[in-house]
Simulated assay, not measured.
Amino acid sequence: MTAMLISVVELSNILAVFAVFLIICLFGVFLIVMRNMVLRVHGDDFMFGGNAGAMPHSPRIPQMKMMKVHIPFTFKLHESSKSTYAEVECEVSSQVEYSLQAIWGVSIRELHLALWKPWNAMRDASLNGTLLQGHAQYLTPPQIRQPHGEETLRLSLPAPELELGTPPRLCYPLVIFLTRKDNRDPHPDETVALVNVVHIKDSVCTLPTSILAQYLKQANGQLSCLKQLYLATGNSTSYDEGDVSSGIGPALALAEPCNNSNGNTRDALVASGASDNEGSLWNSAGEQLCVVCQYFPLSRALLPCRHTCICASCFGKLDRCPMCRSPIKSYFCIRGEEYMPNDNDINPCKQRQATHGPSHWLHDWNDRLTDFLGFAR
């Protein structure tokens, strides 16, 4: 009997030690979990534990202040796979009276020097047909044209061939100037010229025929390089990187200021095409919704990737573009964001938190703990 009692006492001591050890282990696990856990309370992140640098707050992504300018011209290439020096087919429209001139075999250096000339000098040279004279192989006479809608033009080289040399070449095959013909002094921010640099496929340089660059000239002398925005939806503003025949059409584009010799640049621009209007992008068809929530309309263009695919509500939850996964450095708005609910309204993204009342942080904590431990929610 005595031996049995001694055995029970020893077993109880072992169980007590094991229980204490188990409690210590559980407490250690709890501390580790709490040390690496972030709780979101009323929209703010709080971190437990002293190692706050292990999970820093992501910096706020800055908004780029943009100024919207209007382009009175549109220019696009057609059937680029079939374009040759004998015939380049393009589509042009204009809302103003303008001069159209096609210049072949243009010196790259002299073109960029000419683009930085004052607007008055550039306009006079374009109207007189002396623009880039002596720095191009063939100059076609300028055509003065009245405003018109989309019209197909066919351009052809007025000589048997160009002497462009071997790559890397020092000349552009074709540059097309669309220049406003105004006797009045335009507003300083008004668009006065659209310059289109076109590459044409040949036996030496077999890259597909495409628009290499498009430059926007303003009356104040500012020169900007136009870059199309990439929309995730199939509408008139969509832009396919593989579509080498694309150009500035009835859409929005990012106009990035070019650096001149003085280093003076202005803020970036949002350029709208000739047939663009404020409501055309945001119809009720449903294809312009945010790719993340599929609830609000997309309204923000991400930089530097230029994907326009998310709304203001989802933007705050992302640090990478949902389309290409590249980091978001900055952004700008391409439309008003009046669709965002007021403070009195319930945001669909926070609806579950609101339904839980004051204890919503417990549910958020539970979700984060579940994710941390690797279980599926």
Rank of each mutant, 00 (worst) to 15 (best):
S80A: 15
L31V: 10
L15C: 11
V175G: 07
A54M: 07
G43E: 09
L373A: 12
N259S: 09
G28C: 13
Y98W: 04
G43T: 05
Q143S: 05
V96E: 08
P186Y: 11
M47D: 07
L113C: 14
C311K: 02
G247M: 11
H187N: 07
T191C: 09
Q137W: 15
S80L: 05
E241N: 08
E241F: 13
N259Q: 09
S284V: 14
K181W: 08
K68F: 03
Q143P: 00
L231V: 12
N36T: 14
S299W: 05
W282P: 01
L162C: 06
L194G: 12
F372P: 01
L157F: 04
Y239M: 00
V270L: 15
W119D: 01
C293I: 10
T265K: 11
V244R: 02
L113R: 14
L26P: 00
V92L: 09
L298V: 09
L11V: 13
P147R: 00
A251V: 06
T152D: 05
S313E: 12
V198F: 10
L223M: 09
T84C: 15
K329Q: 03
D343E: 08
W116R: 10
V195C: 06
C205L: 15
V92G: 02
N262A: 11
I103W: 04
C309D: 03
Y138I: 13
W104N: 01
T130Y: 00
K68E: 01
F21E: 12
L39Y: 00
V192Y: 07
I334V: 11
M64W: 02
C90F: 06
N366Y: 11
V20C: 10
A16H: 15
Q101L: 08
K76A: 15
G43C: 10
N128P: 00
L15F: 14
A255L: 07
W119S: 10
A159G: 04
K65I: 12
A136P: 01
M323V: 10
F30R: 06
V270D: 11
S80N: 13
M37N: 10
N283S: 12
S83H: 01
C25E: 07
R368M: 13
Y295E: 07
Q63M: 08
L194W: 02
L252N: 00
E89T: 06
